[in-house]
Simulated assay, not measured.
Amino acid sequence: MLFIGFALLVAVALALLISADAGSLAGLTQDQTGQLIPLVILLIVFAAGAFTQRRRAAELLGSLALWGGLFAVAMLGYAYRDDLSGVAARVFGDLLPGTAIVDSENGTATFRRGGDGHFRIKGSINGAGMTLIFDTGASAVVLTHADAQRAGIDTGKLRFDIPVSTANGTGRAASVTLDRVEIGGIARRRVRAFVAEAHALDTSLLGMSFLETLSRYAVSSNSLELTD
């Protein structure tokens, strides 16, 4: 009974502290304390369950320590949620290079540098998914012959009459206009591009005809940030 009475007193005190009249708790704003109400309720429910069962004092203390620790971890996770989300995003980017870390609120898409030193970016061209290399040296988006076919372009009707320099040497490309290019949730229509002739290019390039439509793009350390 003593433990039950103590638990009830704690519950009442916490309820008073997080009430609208109490204002704030431990330096948190009134809105933040209001968001803690579900956590407090869960703590009270679990504590009540432990106290209503007939257990030895050592088991009760162990249960209290366990739930108290879980509650503390939950509080810390809530307090540092922004930092933890940033760490999680970096880990996600390292495990899945090329996949965008999208911040819809700020209109940004961030990519992590691959092990080969390039930013390999997963995007969509005319609705077809493909990987492109970020390349400010390319005046336009450049598609490999195979990627162009995946994007629904009839390469048999193209005129490969534009000389281009690629990693494989000098080749030729055809000028096209892409219906839609989407990178990390940032979409553009009617994008000028080139299609390289077969075997002239290993990987498609995300060049300036897309990048120049952005309000900003920046490379810092091992990350690339594109801003709509």
Rank of each mutant, 00 (worst) to 15 (best):
170 T>N: 15
153 I>E: 02
126 N>S: 03
68 G>Q: 09
91 V>K: 03
9 L>M: 15
228 D>W: 10
216 R>C: 09
45 V>I: 15
40 V>D: 05
173 A>T: 03
183 I>K: 01
179 D>S: 05
113 R>Q: 15
171 G>Q: 03
164 V>W: 15
196 A>W: 02
39 L>I: 11
49 G>V: 07
172 R>K: 14
132 L>I: 07
147 D>F: 13
19 S>H: 06
107 G>F: 08
150 R>Y: 05
133 I>E: 00
78 Y>I: 08
56 R>G: 12
212 E>I: 11
99 T>V: 13
209 S>L: 11
185 G>Q: 05
181 V>I: 07
164 V>K: 12
91 V>E: 04
44 I>N: 08
199 H>C: 12
199 H>T: 08
103 D>S: 05
37 I>L: 14
89 A>P: 00
174 A>C: 10
91 V>D: 03
72 A>S: 14
171 G>M: 07
131 T>Q: 11
48 A>D: 08
129 G>N: 14
87 V>L: 10
82 D>Q: 08
60 L>K: 09
112 R>T: 00
61 L>V: 07
127 G>K: 14
68 G>C: 14
139 S>E: 08
69 G>V: 06
186 I>D: 00
3 F>L: 09
209 S>H: 03
146 A>C: 03
16 L>P: 01
22 A>C: 08
165 S>F: 12
112 R>F: 02
212 E>Y: 11
23 G>I: 04
152 G>N: 13
67 W>I: 14
107 G>N: 13
49 G>L: 07
131 T>E: 10
205 L>T: 02
226 L>P: 00
132 L>V: 11
26 A>S: 13
214 L>Q: 03
79 A>V: 10
25 L>G: 03
94 D>M: 10
30 Q>F: 10
142 V>P: 00
157 K>L: 14
95 L>W: 10
213 T>Y: 07
181 V>M: 06
152 G>E: 14
43 L>Q: 15
11 A>L: 11
152 G>C: 13
219 V>S: 07
127 G>M: 14
22 A>Q: 04
199 H>F: 13
176 V>W: 04
126 N>L: 10
3 F>S: 06
135 D>N: 09
137 G>K: 09
162 I>V: 10
143 L>S: 02
112 R>P: 00
32 Q>Y: 03
214 L>A: 02
27 G>Q: 03
30 Q>H: 13
162 I>A: 06
70 L>G: 09
55 R>V: 12
189 R>M: 15
206 L>R: 02
188 R>Q: 10
103 D>L: 05
104 S>W: 13
30 Q>Y: 06
11 A>F: 11
76 L>P: 01
141 V>P: 01
76 L>H: 06
51 F>K: 01
12 V>T: 12
120 R>C: 08
37 I>E: 07
200 A>P: 01
101 I>S: 01
120 R>T: 05
215 S>K: 15
121 I>K: 01
221 S>F: 13
165 S>N: 12
155 T>W: 12
205 L>W: 02
20 A>T: 07
95 L>H: 04
98 G>K: 03
183 I>D: 00
146 A>H: 03
10 V>N: 08
4 I>G: 12
176 V>E: 07
